[in-house]
Design a protein around this nucleic acid. Structure first.
Lengths: 207, 207
DNA sequence: TAGATTGTTAATCGATTAACAATC
DNA sequence: TAGATTGTTAATCGATTAACAATC
């Protein structure tokens, strides 16, 4: 484990770099400089190089970076060089929207099922919807890499407990509440309301 | 304008503090200490006090903060002490889910309409859906505080241009692309894919 | 009063920017 | 070769933590 640990600030930028490299690859561009990446992602060129410093970026002085190689390196760091199985708990507005989102599958996130207390429809966007009471058994029979919590905040912690007990180690939490999990489980929270409030702040406090 | 400017790092935490104060108010709690807030929001007590330093937090030594007063102060700073009119461009999965989200209205964000190139249904969750071709006229006749871009990335910039021309000064952008706007317009980006990739990183690089 | 807790300054830590030698 | 651009160190900047006097 000689790998230098990457700072949180850097990690948050890696998906942006990765996204831009995908665009370049689609356009057939073969090389790119730190300053082009910087412009595209609204950071400084120095920061791009500093972020890349510590992992093998395959940069060449006087030339830049090979788009394909750099994209592959970032994919590997971000863990999207291999597929992830995924389930969604809560088949409401958000859960349903996530199930319909095409972009996740493109990165190898394979949605296997949705779960809800109330199975209004047998499937959403082709993904089966099961009763939440069957979640426990499902987890015994299927390896789930990532579980999405898209329930109300009232049931989020209970759902998290079931997931953890069932061996899930990565949780993407859309519920408006902090969930408590053991140290071996990673959680990424996403709060639309918080984002909207930040926008509201900016709008209200313009110079 | 003696108001000290609040740092970006602090601004991102204000909605969390605000959310916790709402919980306390609902529970009928009247006072709270910086260390309680800190625990609830997973930061240090010192940071809470540092964040509050600079605006009138009404804290009392030896006692703590008055929940109602502090919540009102944060609401005012975040701009949610008054209502905001809102529209959503793109009535797909995400646009529809946002229209169905109850939490926004509770904070005074009043959704007036959705717009789409293809009006599949006249209304979603009781909100009228109009053809995108009428957006221009709508903006002339209605004051829109916040516009949500929930379109594909291909049309995001064009939509942004129409919004800006129509006088919208705050944009909440869900499209997977950076949009360019004049300096007087504020943009808050939210990227689910980026969030998912951060989770993927954490999952793949656990110690 | 004694205990608790804020407001505020100073110290520390980490992240960003600047600079430039190395080198393609 | 000359120009371009990286990798890397040092300098700067900003954010977090620590500490404690003020005071309720």
């Amino acid at each position: 484990m000689l790998k230098k640990t990457i700072s949180d600030a850097t990690i948050k930028r890696l998906p942006k770099y990765y996204g831009y490299l995908k665009v370049l690859e689609d356009e057939g561009v073969e090389k790119v400089s730190s300053s082009s990446i910087a412009t595209a992602v609204s950071v400084s060129a120095s920061q791009v190089r500093q972020d890349f410093f510590g992992f093998e970026s395959n940069g060449q002085q006087g030339y830049g970076y090979d788009v394909k190689k750099l994209k592959a390196t970032l994919a590997s760091i971000l863990g999207v060089d291999k597929p992830h199985s995924m389930i969604i708990i809560g088949a409401g507005h958000i859960g349903g929207a996530l199930a319909g989102h095409k972009g996740f599958a493109q990165e190898g996130f394979q949605l296997k099922a949705l779960f809800d207390i109330n199975v209004a429809q047998e499937s959403i966007h082709g993904i089966p919807v099961y009763n939440i009471s069957t979640l426990n058994d499902f987890l015994k029979e299927n390896k789930v890499d990532i579980a999405v919590i898209a329930t109300t905040k009232d049931s989020a912690q209970e759902v998290a407990n079931t997931l953890v007990k069932g061996g899930v180690e990565s949780i993407w939490n859309f519920a408006q509440i902090e969930i408590n999990v053991p140290k071996n489980v990673v959680v990424e929270n996403i709060s639309m309301l918080e984002s909207l409030l930040v926008l509201s702040y900016k709008a209200s406090n313009k110079i």
